[in-house]
């Protein structure tokens, strides 16, 4: 993790318009989130269920003495859940000063994505899922869908739902 962050800082200095993205697969598609928002990647250990929370909140877990919520990416996007595997990970990220975990099937890569190669999301998804997306990138043979973490862990909406 330490090394990842170091290279990120260096590259932003050298090439102003290229950002690093953490890339992973859900189902058959490839998704990416800005690496700058990612704090660390952990293996998934079962979270403690929070009563009356929405289904995509798996629960809360202990991150070195802090209690953080874990969001299941699949449930959040309306995909059927899959059981825990060895590769199942939690990506710990920060939005609006709050830390949360995003449970993913696996992570695959870190990618440099030039800012000008990001295209607006085509209106393929429903409006409900559209808000999670911040753009699309065509890279070599594959398409990477960029995700908006602020919408995935929407603290305002959550605080109303739980209360």
């Amino acid at each position: 993790m330490q090394t990842l962050e170091t290279t990120t800082t260096e590259s932003t200095i050298q090439e102003q318009n290229t950002n690093k993205y953490l890339v992973f697969q859900i189902g058959g598609e490839t998704y990416g989130v800005p690496l700058l928002q990612v704090q660390e990647i952990r293996t998934y250990t079962p979270a403690t269920r929070v009563p009356n929370a929405p289904d995509y909140v798996l629960g809360v877990m202990n991150l070195r003495g802090n209690i953080i919520a874990v969001i299941d990416a699949r449930t959040r996007f309306g995909l059927p859940p899959v059981p825990d595997e060895q590769e199942t990970v939690v990506v710990v990220a920060q939005v609006q000063g709050k830390i949360f975990g995003l449970r993913l099937d696996s992570v695959s890569d870190v990618m440099d994505i030039p800012e000008d190669s990001i295209q607006p999301t085509p209106p393929i998804a429903s409006e409900a899922t559209q808000k999670f997306l911040s753009g699309v990138v065509q890279s070599d043979e594959r398409v990477v869908i960029l995700l908006n973490l602020d919408e995935i862990f929407d603290i305002q909406a959550l605080s109303q739902m739980v209360a």
């Binding site: 079962p46 929370a53 202990n62 209690i67 953080i68 919520a69 709050k98 605080s159």
Partner: peptide
């Protein structure tokens, strides 16, 4: 431990704690 610090206030619960096995209990 605070639930609100990184999450939200959960009705009926004052907070959380970390158990001996590292898991969280409300």
């Amino acid at each position: 431990k605070s639930l609100e610090e990184n999450f939200v206030r959960v009705p009926g619960f004052a907070g959380a704690t970390i158990l001996g096995d590292g898991r969280v209990a409300l």
